[in-house]
C-alpha cells in the first residue's frame, strides 16, 4: 500500500526518540577509545638501536635522529631523536617497522599546541645511559693513557737534560744532533712531540727528527741569504 513507508519512517524516528543519546560529553567526560587508537607517537630512547628503519619507512619525513660513532666500538651511539609531529599522518608504518618496539601510539589525542615549535618533539640522550657506559668502558682507557703520559713526561725530562745521548740513537751526523738539540731547547713543542713519538713509535720518531733537522737547515740558509741581501 502507498504510504506504508511513511508510517515506517515515523516509527523509526519515534524509536530513536526514546533511545539513549550517543553524544559524547567531551571534555567533561573523556571518550572511551579503542585499544588500537592512534593518539600521540611516543618514543623509548633506551630501547632504540639507531637502525634507521623508522626514518626510512616514514612517508612524511617526520622522524630523524642524530648518532655518533665512538672510536673503540662499532655501535652507533644515539644522541637525539626528533619527531616533527606536525607532518605525521598516523599511518603506523614506523611503529610496524621498528624491530625493537621503541615506537608506539598512546591514547592522548589532545595534540594542539600554542606554537608551531611546540609540536616538534626532541628526545635527548638521557644522562643515566652514558653514566652506565662510563662505569664499564671508560676507566680502562684512562689507565692506559695515564701510563703513557708518565712515560712521555719522563722521556721529555731526559731529552731536556741530555739531548745528545738520546738523539745519537736516531741521527748520524754530529752537526744534525747539535741543530736538533738547540731547536728543542728553544721550542718546547718540538721536544714534546719527539718525546711522545719516542715512547710510542721509535722509527717514526727518527723520521720526524730528520724532518725537523732538514727544515731547520733550510730556515737557517734562508735567514743567511736574507742577511746578505
Amino acid at each position: 500500500m502507498n504510504g506504508q513507508g511513511l508510517i515506517k519512517g515515523l516509527g523509526i524516528t519515534l524509536k530513536h526518540f526514546f533511545q539513549k543519546e550517543i553524544t559524547e560529553q567531551y571534555p567533561d567526560v573523556m571518550p572511551e577509545l579503542a585499544t588500537r587508537f592512534r593518539g600521540c607517537l611516543q618514543f623509548e630512547f633506551e630501547k632504540c638501536i639507531a637502525c634507521g628503519i623508522c626514518v626510512n619507512s616514514c612517508p612524511n619525513n617526520v622522524l630523524s635522529f642524530e648518532t655518533e660513532k665512538s672510536e673503540n666500538s662499532k655501535k652507533k651511539k644515539l644522541l637525539s631523536y626528533t619527531i616533527d609531529f606536525q607532518y605525521c599522518m598516523f599511518c603506523n608504518l614506523c611503529v610496524e617497522g621498528c624491530p625493537k618496539d621503541c615506537l608506539h601510539f598512546d591514547h592522548d589525542f589532545e595534540l594542539s599546541t600554542f606554537s608551531r615549535d611546540d609540536i616538534k618533539r626532541v628526545y635527548l640522550r638521557p644522562a643515566e645511559m652514558d653514566e652506565e657506559k662510563e662505569a664499564d668502558a671508560a676507566p680502562v682507557q684512562d689507565e692506559q693513557e695515564s701510563k703513557e703520559q708518565k712515560q712521555i713526561d719522563a722521556m721529555l725530562k731526559a731529552l731536556q737534560k741530555n739531548p745528545q745521548k738520546i738523539l745519537a740513537k736516531m741521527l748520524e751526523q754530529e752537526e744534525d744532533i747539535g741543530i736538533l738539540s738547540e731547536l728543542m731547547q728553544s721550542n718546547e713543542k718540538t721536544a714534546g712531540k719527539i718525546a711522545e713519538l719516542l715512547v710510542k713509535d721509535k722509527e717514526k720518531a727518527a723520521k720526524v727528527a730528520a724532518g725537523f733537522v732538514t727544515k731547520e737547515k733550510k730556515n737557517r740558509l734562508q735567514a743567511e741569504k736574507g742577511g746578505e741581501e
Binding site: T13, H16, F17, Q19, K20, E21, I22, T23, Q25
Partner: peptide, 10 residues
C-alpha cells in the same frame, strides 16, 4: 531539543 532526541543527540 526534540530534533536532537530524534537523532540521538542531546
Amino acid at each position: 531539543k526534540v530534533s536532537a532526541f530524534f537523532q540521538e543527540r542531546l
